[in-house]
Design a protein around this nucleic acid. Structure first.
Lengths: 336, 336
DNA sequence: AAATCTGTTGAAAACGTTGCCATAGCGGAC
DNA sequence: GTCCGCTATGGCAACGTTTTCAACAGATTT
């Protein structure tokens, strides 16, 4: 066995045909005699040869790769979206390049620091909350751009209606009979800008529509922040009977504070999250599901369609949110 | 602006130099006059040109990409390891290709279904628990292989001592004074084969060394399984006073069962997990930390070193485990 | 029997980059 | 003033594919 990986030429020699024929077989294009085709496939298998995307990309102009941009990789949410994207791309025979741009993003020209230009066929962003200007810079790369977790006019994207999701959650609490409902949101600076605002608005407008005072506090975007914010709410002279949080991590922090304070959930205080974190089930946390994996899969499908040239009519895919009822919400105590 | 991405030729024309010079500048090799160098960089910036890895890889034989193989993408653990790998690779200017091979793996020849051959410079596996045979097949690809989460003789890898970690956890419980300690492990079929066995062995040997009966039950590898297994333990005629689980998800399920049964933790039963799941902090779960992000970063560094040709003496990196003491463990009740 | 057509195959020119070799300058030593 | 050595630059052949076009055989038509 030669020490260098086999090339198409090696396969051609082994099968006793020309380069062109091997190329045709490998791409599965018609116009090759069945006997020859089989012989070539056999030779390729024996050498365990695979086509070099590098070389083929050079001439076709396609790399067979899609770049996925995520702010961070650690939070569970991104793993789920990536899983969906991976599924979709794999089905289409595309590879997935993942770039974690959290740190990088502070630099003004970060978009050109990424070797996207000739190295991927499309770019999918995951919950990046891009500004119009950043989008424009990515456009310059010259490949299709598909957004996830945000909705920008005229741009392909997959997203949920955060506003409606939060409204749904709020209404659930109101329907149970709560009137003193507080909201814990994350303060700016996190990677969820627009989505954050939308959820807050969904809460606020529902409260206002119901003729109730809207009441919200801010926290850092992690469970630690939820703990502190909950403590703050408990120190109010009339604490809320129900609390909605911007996402599950915050709710989980709040849950901890309640548990430590010996306040029964949902007995004294009903608690709701948002996202359906994998750990939410364990905490029996009522929440709003947004199935990130489906979002990812949908984004991948959209990308594949765009790459195939079939410009789909609905370049905006809105994924549904579902209320997941668990044991952390109930009607308020009658004494109230 | 031309509709096609700029090539090195365009930059050369704009800067009034030859292709070779541009190539030298882009690669940062010495032997170019400072004035010319600056002029070329300027021209490249104006065209927002980036080198095509496709083309350069074709001649250098290096792709500038590393393939990362994970069984699944969804569980939090993989996101963390990927984050670490991404950090390390980014620092070295390498791109990260991610392949989710969970489903694919059932097929016997799955390793050749991946376009690794000429498309990546190295392969990192994450908690794949590969057999020697599978490793051999990946060797055939002809690129360095770095394992993560498993230790195979003669192979580069980063891992933790699962056995010792479990032993450490068990000893913690014994030191608290517990004598009836049960272990909930996952039954086979999950992606954690060797690691699973090692943790069990660590528990068993520590118990035996202490002259105590080892007592373990199996569950499915998720929190659901933990719930059921805990229920099973509670129905014993003399339930345990402490429970160690193979990993945090199981512990979180067990915690739920305890909470629902009104059994105080750690009052009546002490509970321990393993892994330091991001949600473990919220549950106040005592656990064993294995900082997956550091594992990933370490694997990436190792890979970069191997690619640089400097064969590091310690191709086996053992990462430390740390006991994280929280509020889910305490001494058993005196009445026992 | 000549002409046309159809289906298969091979030869050669791209693609965008890097590596090697040649060459043009230019300063200093003889 | 010639020769040497040095540095900065350009030219050209790779790299491994795809693509276009031409060539060829055999079958069918005229």
């Amino acid at each position: 066995m030669s020490k260098h990986p086999p090339s198409m030429r090696d396969v051609a020699r082994r099968a006793g045909v020309s380069l062109s024929t091997v190329s045709r077989v490998m791409r599965g294009v018609p116009g090759v005699a069945p006997a020859v085709r089989e012989r070539v496939q056999e030779a390729a298998a024996e050498l365990s040869y695979v086509v070099s995307r590098n070389a083929s990309g050079l001439v076709t102009g396609r790399t067979g790769r899609v770049a996925v941009l995520v702010p961070f990789l650690q939070p569970w949410f991104f793993g789920s979206v990536l899983a969906g994207i991976s599924d979709g791309l794999q089905r289409a025979g595309l590879d997935m390049l993942v770039y974690q741009v959290g740190e990088l993003r502070r630099q003004p020209g970060w978009t050109s620091a990424l070797p996207l230009r000739r190295n991927s066929d499309a770019v999918i962003t995951v919950a990046m909350d891009l500004s119009a200007e950043e989008c424009g810079r990515l456009d310059e790369v010259g490949v299709p751009l598909v957004l996830t977790g945000q909705c920008l006019p005229g741009r392909a994207g997959v997203f949920i209606d955060d506003r409606q999701g939060a409204a749904k959650a709020t209404r659930h609490l109101l329907n149970l009979g709560h009137t003193r409902v507080a909201y814990i949101g994350s303060e700016g600076g996190s990677w969820r800008g627009r989505s954050s605002r939308n959820r807050l608005e969904g809460f606020q407008s529902t409260m206002v529509d119901a003729g109730l005072a809207e009441w919200s506090v801010l926290s850092t975007p992690d469970h630690r922040g939820g703990e502190l914010a909950m403590g703050e709410l408990l120190s109010d002279h009339r604490p809320p009977t129900a609390v909605l949080t911007e996402f599950d991590d915050i709710a989980m922090g709040a849950h901890r504070t309640l548990r430590r304070s010996g306040i029964p959930v949902p007995g004294a205080i009903s608690l709701m999250g948002f996202d359906n974190h994998e750990a939410a089930a364990v905490l029996d946390l009522t929440t709003v599901d947004q199935s990130p994996r489906a979002i990812g899969a949908s984004a991948a499908d959209l990308t594949v369609k765009i790459l195939a040239g079939e410009d789909p009519p609905d370049r905006h895919v809105e994924m549904p949110t579902r209320l997941i009822l668990r044991q952390s919400t109930s009607a308020p105590l009658l004494s109230e």
